[in-house]
Protein backbone atom coordinates (compact mmCIF):
# COMPACT_ATOMS: atom_id res chain seq x y z
CA UNK A 1 0.00 0.00 0.00
CA UNK A 2 1.14 3.51 -0.73
CA UNK A 3 0.01 6.82 0.66
CA UNK A 4 -0.97 8.13 -2.74
CA UNK A 5 -4.66 8.41 -3.45
CA UNK A 6 -5.76 6.13 -6.27
CA UNK A 7 -7.53 7.79 -9.13
CA UNK A 8 -11.14 6.76 -9.07
CA UNK A 9 -12.67 6.32 -12.49
CA UNK A 10 -16.00 7.38 -11.08
CA UNK A 11 -14.71 10.73 -9.89
CA UNK A 12 -12.47 11.46 -12.84
CA UNK A 13 -12.76 15.06 -13.97
CA UNK A 14 -14.65 14.62 -17.18
CA UNK A 15 -15.47 18.23 -17.90
CA UNK A 16 -14.12 20.00 -20.92
CA UNK A 17 -14.21 23.78 -21.21
CA UNK A 18 -14.57 25.34 -24.65
CA UNK A 19 -15.13 29.05 -25.14
CA UNK A 20 -15.62 29.37 -21.39
CA UNK A 21 -18.41 26.78 -21.34
CA UNK A 22 -17.89 23.67 -19.20
CA UNK A 23 -19.27 20.65 -21.02
CA UNK A 24 -20.32 17.66 -18.91
CA UNK A 25 -18.72 15.10 -21.23
CA UNK A 26 -15.80 14.72 -23.57
CA UNK A 27 -18.01 12.83 -25.97
CA UNK A 28 -19.84 15.03 -28.45
CA UNK A 29 -22.82 13.37 -30.04
CA UNK A 30 -23.33 13.61 -33.78
CA UNK A 31 -26.99 13.16 -34.67
CA UNK A 32 -26.65 12.09 -38.31
CA UNK A 33 -28.04 8.75 -39.46
CA UNK A 34 -30.18 8.13 -36.36
CA UNK A 35 -33.02 5.78 -37.28
CA UNK A 36 -35.57 7.92 -35.44
CA UNK A 37 -35.77 10.79 -33.01
CA UNK A 38 -36.79 8.31 -30.30
CA UNK A 39 -33.71 6.12 -30.73
CA UNK A 40 -31.56 9.21 -31.01
CA UNK A 41 -32.89 10.50 -27.69
CA UNK A 42 -32.00 7.23 -25.95
CA UNK A 43 -28.53 7.19 -27.50
CA UNK A 44 -27.89 10.80 -26.50
CA UNK A 45 -28.86 10.01 -22.92
CA UNK A 46 -26.63 6.92 -22.87
CA UNK A 47 -23.71 8.87 -24.31
CA UNK A 48 -23.66 11.37 -21.47
CA UNK A 49 -23.06 14.08 -24.07
CA UNK A 50 -23.86 17.71 -23.39
CA UNK A 51 -23.24 18.90 -26.94
CA UNK A 52 -24.88 17.61 -30.09
CA UNK A 53 -24.37 18.47 -33.74
CA UNK A 54 -27.16 19.30 -36.15
CA UNK A 55 -27.29 20.20 -39.83
CA UNK A 56 -29.26 23.12 -41.27
CA UNK A 57 -31.62 22.19 -44.08
CA UNK A 58 -34.78 23.47 -45.75
CA UNK A 59 -37.90 23.04 -43.64
CA UNK A 60 -40.01 20.18 -44.96
CA UNK A 61 -43.79 20.67 -45.14
CA UNK A 62 -45.51 19.27 -42.07
CA UNK A 63 -42.31 18.37 -40.20
CA UNK A 64 -41.72 21.60 -38.30
CA UNK A 65 -38.66 22.18 -36.16
CA UNK A 66 -38.93 19.04 -34.01
CA UNK A 67 -35.24 18.28 -33.47
CA UNK A 68 -34.38 21.61 -31.85
CA UNK A 69 -36.80 21.29 -28.91
CA UNK A 70 -36.01 17.58 -28.55
CA UNK A 71 -32.29 18.17 -28.09
CA UNK A 72 -32.96 21.14 -25.84
CA UNK A 73 -35.12 18.94 -23.61
CA UNK A 74 -32.25 16.46 -23.41
CA UNK A 75 -29.99 19.19 -22.07
CA UNK A 76 -27.92 19.39 -25.21
CA UNK A 77 -26.15 22.51 -26.25
CA UNK A 78 -26.33 22.63 -30.05
CA UNK A 79 -23.38 22.63 -32.41
CA UNK A 80 -24.78 23.37 -35.88
CA UNK A 81 -22.55 22.29 -38.74
CA UNK A 82 -21.99 23.49 -42.27
CA UNK A 83 -21.98 19.97 -43.69
CA UNK A 84 -22.35 19.75 -47.43
CA UNK A 85 -20.83 23.18 -48.09
CA UNK A 86 -18.19 23.19 -50.81
CA UNK A 87 -17.28 26.88 -50.72
CA UNK A 88 -16.48 29.38 -48.00
CA UNK A 89 -19.45 31.50 -49.10
CA UNK A 90 -21.89 28.59 -48.65
CA UNK A 91 -20.44 27.80 -45.22
CA UNK A 92 -20.71 31.40 -44.04
CA UNK A 93 -24.36 31.64 -45.14
CA UNK A 94 -25.19 28.33 -43.44
CA UNK A 95 -23.47 29.46 -40.23
CA UNK A 96 -25.42 32.72 -40.26
CA UNK A 97 -28.70 30.84 -40.75
CA UNK A 98 -27.81 28.52 -37.87
CA UNK A 99 -27.01 31.43 -35.56
CA UNK A 100 -30.34 33.05 -36.38
CA UNK A 101 -32.35 29.81 -36.05
CA UNK A 102 -30.73 28.31 -32.97
CA UNK A 103 -29.42 31.33 -31.09
CA UNK A 104 -25.83 30.10 -30.85
CA UNK A 105 -22.63 31.49 -32.27
CA UNK A 106 -20.97 28.07 -32.05
CA UNK A 107 -20.51 26.42 -35.42
CA UNK A 108 -18.81 23.27 -36.62
CA UNK A 109 -17.21 24.48 -39.80
CA UNK A 110 -17.09 21.95 -42.61
CA UNK A 111 -15.99 23.00 -46.07
CA UNK A 112 -15.44 19.83 -48.03
CA UNK A 113 -14.70 18.58 -51.50
CA UNK A 114 -17.31 16.87 -53.63
CA UNK A 115 -15.25 13.96 -54.91
CA UNK A 116 -16.51 11.10 -52.77
CA UNK A 117 -13.98 11.58 -49.96
CA UNK A 118 -15.79 14.48 -48.20
CA UNK A 119 -12.33 15.60 -47.07
CA UNK A 120 -11.81 19.22 -46.02
CA UNK A 121 -10.87 21.70 -48.76
CA UNK A 122 -8.02 23.58 -47.03
CA UNK A 123 -8.06 26.92 -48.92
CA UNK A 124 -11.85 27.26 -48.63
CA UNK A 125 -11.72 26.09 -45.00
CA UNK A 126 -9.15 28.75 -44.05
CA UNK A 127 -11.10 31.42 -45.94
CA UNK A 128 -14.35 30.52 -44.18
CA UNK A 129 -12.70 30.27 -40.76
CA UNK A 130 -11.20 33.74 -41.11
CA UNK A 131 -14.54 35.23 -42.17
CA UNK A 132 -16.57 33.53 -39.46
CA UNK A 133 -14.12 34.41 -36.67
CA UNK A 134 -14.33 38.01 -37.90
CA UNK A 135 -18.13 37.84 -37.65
CA UNK A 136 -17.94 36.72 -34.04
CA UNK A 137 -18.58 33.01 -34.49
CA UNK A 138 -16.94 30.44 -32.23
CA UNK A 139 -15.57 28.10 -34.84
CA UNK A 140 -15.00 24.38 -34.34
CA UNK A 141 -13.01 23.57 -37.46
CA UNK A 142 -13.37 20.15 -39.05
CA UNK A 143 -9.96 19.54 -40.58
CA UNK A 144 -7.89 16.65 -41.82
CA UNK A 145 -5.04 15.06 -39.89
CA UNK A 146 -2.54 17.70 -41.04
CA UNK A 147 -0.66 19.35 -38.13
CA UNK A 148 0.24 22.37 -40.26
CA UNK A 149 -3.36 23.09 -41.21
CA UNK A 150 -4.45 22.67 -37.60
CA UNK A 151 -1.88 25.27 -36.54
CA UNK A 152 -3.04 27.64 -39.27
CA UNK A 153 -6.64 27.31 -38.11
CA UNK A 154 -5.65 27.94 -34.51
CA UNK A 155 -3.77 31.08 -35.50
CA UNK A 156 -6.96 32.37 -37.18
CA UNK A 157 -8.77 32.18 -33.84
CA UNK A 158 -10.93 29.07 -34.00
CA UNK A 159 -11.95 27.72 -30.57
CA UNK A 160 -11.33 24.04 -31.39
CA UNK A 161 -9.82 21.95 -34.16
CA UNK A 162 -11.50 18.71 -35.16
CA UNK A 163 -9.17 16.48 -37.16
CA UNK A 164 -10.68 13.45 -38.83
CA UNK A 165 -9.27 10.06 -37.99
CA UNK A 166 -10.30 8.88 -41.47
CA UNK A 167 -12.91 10.04 -43.98
CA UNK A 168 -16.45 10.63 -42.73
CA UNK A 169 -18.55 7.50 -42.40
CA UNK A 170 -15.79 5.04 -43.30
CA UNK A 171 -15.34 3.44 -39.89
CA UNK A 172 -11.65 3.02 -40.68
CA UNK A 173 -10.61 4.47 -37.32
CA UNK A 174 -7.50 6.59 -36.82
CA UNK A 175 -5.32 6.04 -39.89
CA UNK A 176 -2.47 8.30 -38.80
CA UNK A 177 -2.14 8.20 -35.01
CA UNK A 178 1.21 9.96 -35.19
CA UNK A 179 -0.31 13.02 -36.83
CA UNK A 180 -3.23 13.11 -34.41
CA UNK A 181 -0.79 12.94 -31.48
CA UNK A 182 1.29 15.71 -33.06
CA UNK A 183 -1.77 17.94 -33.49
CA UNK A 184 -2.83 17.33 -29.89
CA UNK A 185 0.67 17.98 -28.53
CA UNK A 186 1.01 21.32 -30.34
CA UNK A 187 -2.48 22.80 -30.01
CA UNK A 188 -3.24 25.34 -27.30
CA UNK A 189 -6.95 24.93 -27.98
CA UNK A 190 -9.11 21.80 -27.57
CA UNK A 191 -8.60 19.04 -30.13
CA UNK A 192 -11.69 16.96 -30.90
CA UNK A 193 -11.24 13.80 -32.92
CA UNK A 194 -13.96 13.72 -35.53
CA UNK A 195 -14.89 11.37 -38.35
CA UNK A 196 -14.01 7.85 -39.33
CA UNK A 197 -14.44 6.07 -36.04
CA UNK A 198 -15.88 2.59 -36.20
CA UNK A 199 -16.12 1.48 -32.60
CA UNK A 200 -15.37 2.54 -29.04
CA UNK A 201 -11.69 1.56 -29.12
CA UNK A 202 -11.15 4.30 -31.73
CA UNK A 203 -12.46 6.87 -29.25
CA UNK A 204 -10.28 5.39 -26.53
CA UNK A 205 -7.20 5.64 -28.76
CA UNK A 206 -8.00 9.25 -29.64
CA UNK A 207 -8.00 10.17 -25.97
CA UNK A 208 -4.83 8.17 -25.33
CA UNK A 209 -3.16 10.16 -28.12
CA UNK A 210 -3.98 13.37 -26.26
CA UNK A 211 -7.20 14.55 -27.84
CA UNK A 212 -9.46 16.55 -25.52
CA UNK A 213 -12.73 15.11 -26.82
CA UNK A 214 -14.29 12.90 -29.45
CA UNK A 215 -17.24 13.45 -31.77
CA UNK A 216 -19.06 10.34 -32.97
CA UNK A 217 -22.10 10.05 -35.20
CA UNK A 218 -22.23 7.18 -37.69
CA UNK A 219 -20.35 4.79 -35.40
CA UNK A 220 -23.10 5.15 -32.80
CA UNK A 221 -26.21 5.84 -34.84
CA UNK A 222 -25.59 3.15 -37.44
CA UNK A 223 -24.54 0.49 -34.93
CA UNK A 224 -26.87 -2.49 -34.57
CA UNK A 225 -27.62 -1.25 -31.05
CA UNK A 226 -27.03 2.53 -30.95
CA UNK A 227 -27.81 2.87 -27.25
CA UNK A 228 -25.26 0.19 -26.31
CA UNK A 229 -22.68 1.73 -28.63
CA UNK A 230 -23.27 5.18 -27.15
CA UNK A 231 -22.54 3.69 -23.73
CA UNK A 232 -19.42 2.00 -25.11
CA UNK A 233 -18.18 5.29 -26.53
CA UNK A 234 -18.80 7.06 -23.23
CA UNK A 235 -16.73 4.46 -21.42
CA UNK A 236 -14.11 4.39 -24.19
CA UNK A 237 -13.57 8.13 -23.88
CA UNK A 238 -13.27 7.84 -20.11
CA UNK A 239 -10.86 4.90 -20.36
CA UNK A 240 -8.69 6.72 -22.88
CA UNK A 241 -8.54 9.89 -20.80
CA UNK A 242 -7.66 7.90 -17.70
CA UNK A 243 -4.97 5.91 -19.54
CA UNK A 244 -3.50 9.10 -20.96
CA UNK A 245 -3.23 10.59 -17.49
CA UNK A 246 -1.92 7.32 -16.04
CA UNK A 247 1.02 7.31 -18.45
CA UNK A 248 1.63 4.30 -20.67
CA UNK A 249 4.85 2.28 -20.56
CA UNK A 250 7.39 2.87 -23.32
CA UNK A 251 7.36 0.60 -26.36
CA UNK A 252 10.32 -1.83 -26.54
CA UNK A 253 11.59 -4.08 -29.27
CA UNK A 254 12.43 -7.01 -26.98
CA UNK A 255 10.53 -8.66 -24.15
CA UNK A 256 10.98 -7.76 -20.49
CA UNK A 257 9.95 -10.57 -18.15
CA UNK A 258 7.30 -9.63 -15.64
CA UNK A 259 8.22 -12.44 -13.22
CA UNK A 260 11.52 -12.55 -11.31
CA UNK A 261 14.34 -14.72 -12.71
CA UNK A 262 15.76 -15.23 -9.24
CA UNK A 263 14.56 -18.22 -7.24
CA UNK A 264 13.25 -20.28 -10.14
CA UNK A 265 13.48 -24.05 -9.47
CA UNK A 266 14.71 -25.86 -12.58
CA UNK A 267 14.84 -29.56 -13.48
CA UNK A 268 18.52 -29.60 -14.37
Amino acid sequence: MTDSTPTDTLTIDDTLTIDGVALPSRLIMGTGHAASHEILAKAVEASGSGLATVAMRRLKPGEGDRLFPLLSRLGQRLLPNTAGCHTAADAVLTAELAREALGTDWVKLEVVVDDGTILPDPPELLDAAKTLVGKGFKVFAYTNDDPVLATRLESLGVVAVMPGGSPIGTGLGILNPHNIELIASRAQIPVVLDAGQGTASDACLAMELGCDAVLAASAINLAADPVAMATAFRLGVQAGLLARRAGRIPRRSLAVASSPSEGLVTAS
Binding site: G30, T31, T53, D65, L67, F68
Partner: peptide, 10 residues
Protein backbone atom coordinates in the same frame (compact mmCIF):
# COMPACT_ATOMS: atom_id res chain seq x y z
CA UNK B 1 -36.72 32.53 -50.09
CA UNK B 2 -35.15 29.78 -48.00
CA UNK B 3 -36.64 28.65 -44.69
CA UNK B 4 -34.29 26.34 -42.77
CA UNK B 5 -34.29 24.40 -39.54
CA UNK B 6 -32.08 21.96 -37.66
CA UNK B 7 -32.13 18.36 -38.85
CA UNK B 8 -30.11 15.30 -37.89
CA UNK B 9 -26.55 15.63 -39.13
CA UNK B 10 -22.87 15.60 -38.31
Amino acid sequence: VDIVTAVQGG
